[in-house]
Amino acid sequence: MSVTTETAVASAARTDAPPAILLDKVNKWYGAMHVLRDINLSVAEGERVVVCGPSGSGKSTMIRCINRLEQHQEGRIIVDGIELNDDMRNLDAIRREVGMVFQSFNLFPHLTVLENCTLAPIWVRRTPKKEAEEQAMEYLRRVKIPEQALKYPGQLSGGQQQRVAIARALCMKPKIMLFDEPTSALDPEMIKEVLDTMVMLADTGMTMICVTHEMGFAQQVADRVVFMDRGEVVESGTPSQVFNDPKTDRLKMFLSQILRGH
């Protein structure tokens, strides 16, 4: 059973603006395995949400459902007012507004950093090439690696590659950014540079959902922390509520395992 400070729909009704992302009784199965069970989640515009939980809890699956890299079978997902269903026009519109950063960066190795960033704006948003390149340089400056623009991803370090991946997603000017364990594949000394970039992004008011184990980041940036276990949302609340005052046994156990590692 889920212990939330208030239900998702009630929270959405409280504010005047419609939520940026609404998950309403979302269920997903892998074969016979019920991996997302009655997920209710509402993310307001400009809100920063961190999702955490043990592996296999469905947290990655949940955010991958938001841009349809995975398909949900029951319930509704509404992104920026558009419902996510079999209608491909909806899907195209949603993918334009949602940017994603992957754990393994997934940069295109045969294109330069600049080309990685301009490809989608040119072909999906129909931006003229010159404008796309200026825009890309602007974002590369913001993630602090403009000098790498003409290099190939294979020539960059892991931290630099992930920052390029963030810039690439930002070049599509999304309203929402999804992060799927962005620092889990990085060497420890590079985690900080990526987290700093994400903090900078959060400060600009971007709506973010971030799956991560970095508790320090959660404390610093998150408006809300959502704890998932075995396919359902177990607890959610502000960082101090979740970390310092866990109410369920499962969250307590998870926290003790995470903190033991520090």
Partner: peptide, 14 residues
């Protein structure tokens, strides 16, 4: 080719 390439292209809306 790794699946991530397919997924990144999908996520960008191509």
């Amino acid at each position: 080719l790794s699946r991530g390439q397919y997924e990144a292209a999908d996520a960008l809306g191509l």
